[in-house]
Amino acid sequence: MKIVPLVWLSAVLCLAGSLVSPLRAAEDGGDQAALNERIQDLKKAVLDLNRDLFLLEEDLLFPANTQFSVFLSVDAGKLFQLDSVKLKIDDKLVAAHLYTERESAALYRGGVQRLYVGNLASGKHEIVAFFTGKGPNDRNYKRATKVVIDKTEDPQFIELKILDDATKEQPEFVAKVWE
């Protein structure tokens, strides 16, 4: 008896499997395509709703005349590896964040994090951010940056930026008020 090499057996079986019921497979495929289309429409509908509810929440909780947001970004960031940040407004702790590896990577790739959103009355306020992490030579590093803002009746945005000061070989922490 001639023994057929087995090398093609898997392929033959796979082919046989796919031919068991071609009609049913086509029907299933059609159903799945329709279901995929339905899921796509649903995703878009929920996204639209989520946007509307997001805006509703913002209007309700953070009205434009008092809205105040703090963002955080990293530019270069070779001299500092961020672990955590704390935010104080008028000496009151309002936000604290411990970064996961993934969040940290997203920041270092150019993403901007919304660290805090809240309400502030018109007038002067002191914003202080405390950064902890690893500085040059992998040493523990803790720094703070402060900015005094004059809150108007328009929404106000502050961006905390972590930069590299190449001349001093030290990280630099600055606060930018967005107009």
């Binding site: 996204l47 639209d48 970004s73 790739r109 901007v112 919304r114």
Partner: peptide, 27 residues
Amino acid sequence: VQDLPYGLALYHFFQDRYFSAITDLMA
């Protein structure tokens, strides 16, 4: 990043959080 919401969307995008990134940009 020249507009903060753009950077915010990137932050979510880089974490594979497409739903949040899309919502932020739409808003």
